[in-house]
């Protein structure tokens, strides 16, 4: 499968099944498009009509290069993975990551919050006890098989409303590491309201990553992330986040915002954060009921695509300069990256990754919490709903008609099961608006890599 596109002056050709990515000239771009359907003579003739200024021997040369790439298994490679998909879905049940809902309560009243200020579809406001937290870690260790690297994310609501329990769970995890051959990676997501020096110091010692929620420009942030009283939160949290990011040496964190229909010019929010000194930035499209006035609509796509293009071009301009930064959705690893198994299975929700409520109930991921049909069991008795687990286990890029022939499948892994369910009532579908944005972001990310390679070659 081939995907080819033009962006920011670059002609890019992706060979999807091998993972090879090529930057080509105009002639080769046009030849690759017709290479499989025309004979050599027909192709040369077609190119003579389209590019009369180019000599035939140059066309012969380009044709030969395409054939070489094909012989090297770097173009027109067939899918070698789908025949093994049945074995793939028979893999053993292993849990390697938990999302601990440490607090089903929040001190902000964000308009777009999928968690309803921490109450998740009408659940009571409550905090996780240390006993439940410890039991969750025991459950993880017991169900992790031979996996050594385990992950625990402190999520909410707002986790800092239950900070003493967070610390207790981390300390318990470090004790478990000594008695089991396991390594915990703890992460924390916070709105920053309660951040202080003591919390930063502990987090810098123990948290592999922290996610700091801020939407960008003050007026954008304050419109969607007020206190319950309606008061603005930007001036409260921004100085704390700047201090926190600096204290982590500008690594192992993200400032993370949400853009909505209110700020389709979201590149300005990204650059606002970058110009304040943040180096690790994510600003992501809201996913919500399409009836909400701030929900993104299909008709917004051209505007959003242009915004991603503008942001990508700006990042190229800043490459290797003091004001460069990382943008989460443009980060792509072409030289390494995960293996095909991982690319096919994605996040592992409902199988390798589970969410735990304050009382110990298990759900496929944080996005499903509170949806009664998705209750999987609890940390005391384990996973009881094996039928549901099997549904998630069989969820992969080949189980989704929209994904099987999509060029982005090995970079996106079939998208988010929760978004698919919310859009179509089925985890094996795909959230169409999200797909279009994801494909655009992958195209931009690869263009940035092409531009960086060119700039490196000029040095």
């Amino acid at each position: 499968m081939i995907h080819q596109y033009k962006n920011n002056g670059y002609n890019i050709v992706m060979d999807v099944n091998s993972g090879a990515i090529h930057v080509v000239d105009d002639l080769m771009y046009d030849m690759i498009e017709k290479f499989q359907e025309l004979s050599k003579e027909e192709l040369i003739q077609a190119m003579q009509e389209k590019h009369p200024e180019i000599a035939v021997d140059v066309m012969e040369e380009a044709y030969s290069e395409i054939q070489d790439l094909k012989d090297q298994q770097a173009l027109f490679v067939e899918d070698a993975y789908e025949p093994y998909i049945d074995e793939f879905t028979d893999r053993p049940n292993v849990v390697k990551a938990l999302c601990l809902h440490i607090a089903h309560d929040c001190n902000l009243a964000c308009e777009y919050c999928f968690a309803d200020e921490g109450t998740y579809n009408g659940m009571p406001k409550e905090l996780m006890s240390l006993e439940v937290g410890k039991k969750a870690l025991d459950f993880l260790v017991e169900n992790s098989g031979n996996r050594r690297n385990l992950e625990v994310d402190f999520f909410g609501g707002e986790p800092l409303l239950n900070w003493e329990v967070v610390k207790g769970i981390v300390n318990y995890g470090r004790e478990l590491e000594k008695t089991h051959d396991k390594k915990f990676r703890f992460t924390l997501t916070t709105n920053g309201v309660r951040l202080n020096d003591e919390i930063m110091e502990f987090a810098n010692k123990e948290m592999g990553n922290v996610v700091l929620s801020i939407d960008g420009r003050p007026e954008v942030h304050n419109r969607m992330r007020p206190f319950p009283s309606g008061a603005a939160s930007y001036d409260i949290v921004m100085p704390k986040f700047q201090k926190f990011a600096e204290s982590r040496n500008q690594t192992n964190y993200y400032v993370r915002g949400t853009f909505t229909r209110n700020n389709k010019d979201f590149a300005k929010d990204v650059l606002h954060l970058a110009d304040l000194g943040f180096k690790e930035i994510s600003v992501e499209p809201v996913v919500t009921d399409p009836k909400e006035p701030y929900a993104l609509q299909e008709e917004d796509l051209p505007e959003l695509f242009a915004e991603y293009d503008e942001l990508a071009a700006e990042m190229v301009k800043r490459y290797k300069k003091d004001n460069e930064f990382n943008f989460f959705h443009f980060m792509i690893d072409l030289a390494g990256g995960p293996c095909v198994y991982k690319r096919l299975s994605g996040c592992g929700s409902g199988t390798e990754y589970l969410a735990v409520t304050p009382t110990g109930d298990l759900y496929p991921c944080h996005q499903f919490v509170g949806k009664k049909d998705f209750l999987m069991g609890n940390i005391f008795e384990g996973v009881k709903n094996n039928e549901l687990r099997d549904q998630f286990k069989k969820c992969n890029v080949y189980s989704k008609d929209k994904c099987r022939n999509c060029f982005a499948k090995f970079y996106c892994s079939g998208g988010c099961a929760a978004n698919s369910y919310n859009a179509h009532g089925n985890i094996n579908d795909a959230y169409d608006l999200g797909c279009e944005l994801q494909k655009k972001r992958i195209e931009c990310a690869i263009m940035i890599k092409a531009a960086e390679a060119e700039l490196d070659a000029e040095e």
């Binding site: 993972g19 930057v23 000239d25 996996r147 980060m331 995960p338 892994s413 992958i442």
Partner: peptide, 29 residues
């Protein structure tokens, strides 16, 4: 080659499960 520059030479690795929960920017562990 005159008409093409290949950006990546490493083909997809055709698992151990030790990598982080996520895919495009993930590192193999």
């Amino acid at each position: 080659m005159k008409h093409v520059k290949t950006l990546n030479t490493k083909k997809l690795c055709n698992g151990c499960g030790e990598c982080q929960t996520s895919v495009g920017n993930q590192t193999c562990e």
